[in-house]
Design a protein around this nucleic acid. Sequence first.
DNA 1: ACGTGTTCAGACAGCGCTGTCAAACCAAGG
DNA 2: CCTTGGTTTGACAGCGCTGTCTGAACACGT
Lengths: 345, 345
Amino acid sequence: MPKATIDDVANLAGVSMKTVSRVVNKEPNVRESTRIKVEEAIARLNYRPNQSARNLASQRTRLIGLIYDDPSAYEIPSAGYVINMQQGTLRACRKAHYELLIHPCNYRNNNLGEELSELIEQARPAGIVLAAPLSNMPKVVKAIESTKTPLVCLSPGKADSQRLSVATNDREICAEMTRYLASLGHKRIAFITGHPSHKAVANRYLGYLDGLRQSGLKFSERLVLNGDNSFDSGVICSEKLLKRKRAPTAIFAANDDMAVAAIRVADQLGIDVPGQLSIAGFDDISLARQIFPTLTTIRQPLSRMSEQAATLLINERNDKVVAANSVTIPASLQIRDSTGPARDQ
Amino acid sequence: MPKATIDDVANLAGVSMKTVSRVVNKEPNVRESTRIKVEEAIARLNYRPNQSARNLASQRTRLIGLIYDDPSAYEIPSAGYVINMQQGTLRACRKAHYELLIHPCNYRNNNLGEELSELIEQARPAGIVLAAPLSNMPKVVKAIESTKTPLVCLSPGKADSQRLSVATNDREICAEMTRYLASLGHKRIAFITGHPSHKAVANRYLGYLDGLRQSGLKFSERLVLNGDNSFDSGVICSEKLLKRKRAPTAIFAANDDMAVAAIRVADQLGIDVPGQLSIAGFDDISLARQIFPTLTTIRQPLSRMSEQAATLLINERNDKVVAANSVTIPASLQIRDSTGPARDQ
DNA sequence: ACGTGTTCAGACAGCGCTGTCAAACCAAGG
DNA sequence: CCTTGGTTTGACAGCGCTGTCTGAACACGT
């Protein structure tokens, strides 16, 4: 039997096509008895609306595009990050019967703007979730905005911007981590910064400063080194820090890759972690639980962030007005074995 | 300016709508001079065909569905596996201007059949790539086949089946690994099997047997223990093996999670790897390169497999006849630090 | 000149749904 | 009874393309 169409349902239920459409789309103003008749017909014929026809007639798709920088394209194994985002976005999509289109790409690609506008004009998704670091690249954001497709960025938005964004409280949680380290008795807490272009990562440094202040510790420029999010930069910075005569007793790195590098360096230098040195990171990559000692870090609620982002997109057209144009979802400390009380000095 | 339609292009080029359609779809029988005229008009108007309209008119979509069991739904951190599959499928999709729809799901869900047929009838993808272990579940495969959507399974197909499948040479490569271990002088090579429902994993055991035979080693039932692919089962099996008086000098596990467990157990028992014990796995998960010692294992060409699968799907309708209905893409040994010469005994 | 076969181009009818608008219906009040 | 205003339903015209079919143009042999 060929697939049932809306006409078949209308005939069987003895109503017009349009009424069936109303029932399917849960539009108001359908008498209860009519609705039931239609629903029975739908069930009997196992009718499923043809998505392509709906898309064409309604001039919009039920697709959410998730655009992110593809880490494995150049050897950063943070697959968990991607999977988490996908899962969050998918949760939101499924609730609303939307589908998810994924589009990993390379942030170093010069034609990225063109690539994305082509994608968008082809597939015409109802909305785009754009992950960091792409969401910090004006070129990319502008290319997407020029297509008039609703966009939500997964990164801290500027307060003045009309752009919707979902972020986590990088700054506050980093202050919390710093206070936690201070509460363990650490006085010399070093910080390894991340890549400067990454806005969220910059906030982490500000949080570190806040935390020091709140704990009554004095800031020392010498304790701050600039990394670039890579494992290798973590190695370089940690070596500099730990080979000093007055080495820090704690290192807080702006991401886990660099924190793991610090653990590795400490191991090579024969420094006990956490006995002589506490190390904390940010991201909670899967490796954080697999290395020895397991890494104290901060878990971004990436999955809930992306879910929220997709939900914003989907609700946008329902006129459920978005109060703020920037939503924050709090991160949480994951205390593990790489941090401990400061040794008496 | 409102988006250009095919009519606009036709008018500008001074041809009919249909001719534009021919150019866009690269159909034959268009005079070169006409084609150029049309292409100029397309470029001038920045025309992009409306996918929804094409889908409706042509009764097919340009979507490939990738359906897989979502490991993180129940705590197996093999995100890399998923990412690899996605990347391969995406490569194939991009070449053909298809889009990828991902659908992670839980193989333990009882309504999976229903869930998938609903998905398929809604989104109407042009084809489905189904990953193991779902591709080994008759219920799931039947549910998908009943929708008449072209399907390619990512797992060894039965020779007699009409079903298309793409697989790797599990058996041959495991024989090779076994021979490699034997060539290092190992006489007592243990094998930890995987979950029995996973067809590819069963083949790994057969490969082990082949390898023993080819190396002139005698098979001993005592050296084979049954795991279930989980880290924990790897721990249990390894402990049994290593606490014996005549412990094996090499352990070959049917997947990396179990092999990593073996390394952990050896470490706890004070057994040096690879000095006293060689350990090999299968999968080449990212952890394999991160643990100490790095794990000798087998890399599945998952990304190329899924690319091939999607390509088969996309070409199917182009009548590029598929010669065999089962394609094999060879895996490769990744020799690292967890294997070494057998100690003199 | 004519037929015959082949290549190229256009007319037209949908694909299956939704948006718009108008008609029918209904309850309440005069 | 009729009006009024709200609720419920249906007719109809597309949405922007592709598939089918028919016609025009052209090449070639007779």
